[in-house]
Design a binder for these strands. Structure first.
Length: 94
DNA sequence: ATAGTGACGGCGG
DNA sequence: ACCGCCGCCACTA
């Protein structure tokens, strides 16, 4: 079962809890980066697929998430808390 | 060079 | 507990 995380979680892990927008910008910029960034696994704090508009297709993100076993319904991750991946918790508090 | 905006969220009222 | 304002940093017009 795949996991998802939120912009705020990443920001907090980086030590910049209030810079969640920067994370979003990083995702946008990541598409130019050589490194493959699974931006589709990143949603907002509510579990909404806010970034789906930035993908090539309209439902590409949903398909990617569902292919990883994550239920997506109405642009929202179902059972978000269960699939939520907290970097601070999983990778350890820095 | 300045101002506005953006894949968000924290914090105050 | 809920709603609204403001901050964060880089980019674009």
């Amino acid at each position: 079962m795949g996991r998802v995380t939120s912009y705020g979680a990443i920001a907090r892990y980086l030590g910049a809890a209030r810079s969640a927008r920067m994370v979003g910008w990083a995702m946008n910029n990541s598409h130019t980066s050589k490194v493959n960034v699974p931006a589709h696994r990143v949603v907002n704090a509510a579990g909404l697929l806010t970034g789906k508009h930035h993908f090539s297709g309209s439902n590409v993100m949903e398909e990617l998430l569902e292919s990883e076993g994550i239920r997506v319904e109405n642009n929202q991750v179902v059972n978000f808390e269960a699939v939520f991946w907290d970097p601070v918790k999983e990778l350890g508090i820095h």
